[in-house]
Design a binder for these strands. Structure first.
Lengths: 149, 149
DNA sequence: CGAATCCCTACTATACCACTTGGATTTATG
DNA sequence: CATAAATCCAAGTGGTATAGTAGGGATTCG
């Protein structure tokens, strides 16, 4: 029941881009260093995000990546779904491509998987990148406060 | 972000035992047939459930497995945790054995994983096997109703 | 006794993950 | 224009987990 590194690294990268939003393109190298991720591997992940229109790229020297929308308009769900597809605890409840088992609609176990799926979706569709930025700022504020005690 | 067959088959088996609750031991063969699972593989899963005290076994002819408690006292979470361990979308938020990343407590991404984890836990700790039995009875009622239309 | 059942240990094929390797292409800057 | 900084692209690779299979031993009812 774990996310793969695709989703996890992807969100970290998008968060890093959010912190840098409005300040021009951020090169992959910087993202990889700050989040401690293999640069070449992250390249493959961000390629997916680009194809799904979540980030734009600027090639050449001084290039890099930028969010394609404001952090408040991108949810955690957008990022995770781009990299991992629709998330579901079982194949029979994947939205859009559910594979029916022999029990079809009348399966109680399936009902449980649906509840889990919906509960996760509710979280990831609610939290935006902006929320994460705000939380980071809150953390930084508390840190400097603690510093003065 | 999927459950493995361990958790999925395990819950199906426990549900089958719930439907048979109070009627003596149910042999593995019957469970495997009704839920369409490899008997020998299911054997390994139910061994785990037995070690964790969720089912009791009766050896010999006319033997089989029984729930160790009433269906209302066993949650979906009990079953899944027995077979898959504490569930969490990332290693850094596994209850009891969280592995800190370099960012430690002050990690915004980690906050997101915690929200997902808690949301899933809320679901699986709330739904009991009895709830599943009730739902099955509801389905059966509707089916026979539809039959009379 | 023998058939039905649970119990236990080991082995295995396949697939996926998490990268690495090795380049080709684009572009700002000196 | 040359160079360095960067994105883009395709293929290979080692390890690990999943989802079983194989084979036999131990117990108990009839």
């Amino acid at each position: 029941m774990k996310l793969s590194t695709k989703g996890r690294y992807g969100l970290k990268a998008m968060f890093e881009l959010s912190l840098h939003f409005g300040k021009g393109p951020l090169p992959l190298k910087d993202i990889a260093e700050k989040q401690n991720i293999s640069e070449h591997y992250l390249e493959q992940l961000i390629a997916t995000l680009r194809k799904d229109g979540l980030v734009n790229s600027v090639r050449g020297a001084q290039g890099g990546y930028l969010l394609s929308s404001e952090p408040k308009d991108i949810t955690v769900g957008d990022v995770i779904r781009s990299l991992e597809g629709n998330i579901a605890p079982a194949d029979c409840v994947i939205e859009g491509e559910a594979i029916d088992c022999d029990k079809g609609e009348f399966c109680v176990t399936r009902g449980v998987w649906k509840k889990i799926r919906d509960s996760v979706n509710q979280v990831i569709d609610t939290v935006t990148l902006q929320d994460m930025v705000d939380e980071q700022e809150e953390i930084d504020k508390n840190k400097s406060y603690m510093f003065y005690i």
